[in-house]
Design a protein around this nucleic acid. Structure first.
Lengths: 242, 242
DNA sequence: AAGGTTAGGTGTACGCCGTACACCTGTCAA
DNA sequence: TTGACAGGTGTACGGCGTACACCTAACCTT
């Protein structure tokens, strides 16, 4: 009867429950402490039970990515492709900020999951509806890179690794040590300027959202200019000059 | 005496030898098969011997990154910041293409290594010498993101995981299956167009180098325009609108 | 030459990981 | 009633990073 009590206490497992629990665990404990064993424990179940619902850990990660990408808002219907894409991407960014482990997870998988394909397809559709040629839409998608999913891959982003650590501590007061500043004067100059306002070290003390929108608009403006000029591929699909 | 023979046969270990062996192993066998044990075996040594030269695996990875970044050419001295930066970045790209594991490794570390800081400092210096304000240089560096190091993070890049697999097989002939094409028509359309020329699936069948330069020039042109307009930060370091 | 310090390679062991495989049990269709 | 099967269990294996104690040869000092 103790067994029955246990069995009743917890809802039956399902692929969906497994994936959501995995996302929640990665969100709050960090992706590096998401193991099959930890996840099973979280669900009150023995590790091997998970394998009845996901075939292995890689597939678990793929599923988690799909859960996250599925949270991105549906496309807004706007006449203007530029604003439509911009808004969609900023919405994607909001989602990814809730799941700091997701960018790295997405980049380290090497095939697109269905949810990501659907998202990309939808964004391409917006470009095409805005009058982009297939080629231009293609190149533009490449140019956007991961930014299309709402994350710029900053070279170093501490928030990507641990779960809540980025949010609770406002910013470690670790201004760069003087001997570092001496060796890298231009980096120091930028860090110094950024520190006036907010915090300390490059990439942490500056306004992420502003930087993201700055780059996004830089790209969108450039793209708009190409499209208005009736851009045609200068050298279509030939191997470029090394 | 057998021991002596062994000891003589191999060069003595050193941090540098360890790092270079690690890079070579990752290059040819893929980053996922770089373990302390494999690396030690490659060097004809017991695993724990490595810890006399690197303090742990994370630090090993940092060292490997420094080795790779150290391979990037010195900056060209040109009057024109745009060409100088462009050439430097394309040089970085050449290097990173020899070490397909490096982009992911770089992104997953969360602090800058000395070699990377030196590289970034040098690039910032080029912008500053070209007349950029500190703020504009700062934002521009963010906008370039990892592209400054020569890799766009394509959403899915198969070459990043395995070692030589990307090079030997020209391209798996896996055109996307028809039911996928039906669900994602815009993706299919692009894949189809790209397949005319080279190969198959999105991100694999298209010309990486072209896409990279397309995005790079898009950014550089936009940056040039801002700089020529005497760009000043519209809202300096205030939290941007969500 | 003698003795102590130390840099660097060795061997063993621990706890974690993913997961193969055999097993049990409750549910439901025939 | 029976038998298939979906789904949770238990054990076990090989691989991982690495702590810790140990050995050994080179070198510096007296």
């Amino acid at each position: 009867m103790a067994e029955q009590a246990e069995t009743l206490r917890r809802a039956p497992l399902s692929r969906d429950r497994v994936l959501r629990a995995a996302v929640a665990l990665a969100d709050q404990a960090g992706i590096e402490s998401l193991s099959m064993r930890n996840l099973a424990q979280e669900l009150g179940v023995v590790p091997m039970a998970l394998y009845k619902h996901v075939s292995n850990k890689d597939e678990l990660l793929d599923g988690m990515i799909d859960v996250v990408v599925g949270e991105i808002d549906a496309p807004v219907s706007e006449a203007d492709w530029k604003h439509a894409v911009r808004q969609r991407i900023l919405s994607a960014r909001q989602v990814l900020r809730r799941h700091p482990w997701a960018p790295l997870a997405i980049e380290s998988r090497n095939m697109a999951t269905p949810a990501i394909l659907a998202y990309l397809d939808s964004v391409i559709g917006t470009f095409r509806a805005g009058g982009f040629s297939v080629d231009l839409a293609h190149h533009v998608m490449h140019a956007m890179g991961s930014r299309i999913l709402g994350f710029s891959q900053e070279l170093f982003d501490a928030t990507r690794r641990a779960g809540r650590s980025g949010r609770t501590e406002p910013t470690p007061p670790a201004v760069l040590p003087p001997e570092v500043a001496a060796r890298f004067p231009h980096v120091a100059e930028i860090a110094m300027a950024a520190a006036h306002d907010d915090a300390s070290v490059l990439g942490q003390g500056c306004d992420d959202q502003f930087e993201f929108e700055f780059a996004l608009d830089l790209l969108l403006d450039g793209i708009e200019r190409l499209q208005q000029q009736g851009w045609a591929s200068p050298r279509r699909h030939r191997k470029a000059s090394g």
